[in-house]
């Protein structure tokens, strides 16, 4: 039995929410496995972000267009099938584009299939909204995910290798912080970003409370 569609919201809202208010990495803290594992350089982060965005966009489109066709008893199986298909496609395409990138991302391309973010968007959003909204939602979430990955990958590459997108930023004498490109550095960097973003959010909330309390 298809689920009833939720009341429509503004398209801009659906797109923007993934960038900041419901950012998949910094707010929802979803899909941590690829976030921590492949954010050791900006290129890897960008590639993983784009691959995830593509899979999410395509699966959201397909799930949304088939939402009245899939009975709810087999919906998870159907979503997994759809997501796995696009992950396989991405896997082939990345190998065709660059073997080097393919080797750097390793098993994490295939592991996009178990990224809870994608299944989460299919289940929580695409199955209840029209195609347009589902696409906007996927794009917003995907871009939010990519930006977050780039935030981590940028910091880790700058400190860990002294470069950004492979371009050396510092003179020869720069001492790389090896820990930053090791798995531990992923946790440190993620924690640092979460700290900063929660601090900013708290300050903004405090400011809005102040505004409400002080009468004009």
């Amino acid at each position: 039995m298809p689920l009833p569609d939720l009341p429509p919201t503004t398209p801009t809202d659906e797109f923007v929410k993934g960038l900041w208010r419901e950012n998949p990495v910094f707010v929802q803290v979803l899909g941590m496995c690829p976030v921590l594992a492949v954010s050791n350089s900006a290129v890897n982060a960008l590639a993983m972000g784009l691959a995830t965005t593509f899979v999410m966009l395509m699966s959201n489109l397909l799930v949304s267009s088939l939402r009245n066709f899939i009975p709810k008893q087999v919906r998870i199986a159907s979503y997994i099938l759809i997501i796995a298909t696009f992950v396989t496609i991405v896997d082939y395409v990345i190998a065709a584009i660059s073997l080097e990138l393919y080797n750097a991302l390793g098993a994490f391309i295939s592991l996009i299939v178990v990224n809870c973010l994608i299944l989460g968007r299919a289940e929580a959003f695409a199955s209840k909204h029209g195609i347009g909204m589902a696409a906007l939602d996927a794009l917003g979430m995907g871009i939010g995910f990519t930006v977050a990955l780039l935030c981590l990958g940028g910091v880790r590459e700058i400190l860990g290798s002294g470069s950004l997108f492979g371009v050396a930023l510092f003179p020869e004498a720069f001492q790389p912080w090896v820990v930053m490109i090791l798995p531990g550095g992923g946790f440190f960097t993620l924690a640092g970003w979460l700290l900063l973003i929660n601090y900013l959010k708290e300050r903004r909330e405090a400011a809005s409370v102040m505004l409400q309390e002080t009468p004009e």
């Binding site: 088939l66 899939i70 009975p71």
Partner: peptide
């Protein structure tokens, strides 16, 4: 009673679609 025919239809349909794409 679970809707058996729609279940078959959707899973097989999606399976075939995905297989062709891959």
């Amino acid at each position: 009673r679970p809707p058996v025919w729609p279940m078959y239809r959707s899973l097989v349909g999606i399976g075939v679609l995905c297989a062709v794409l891959i």
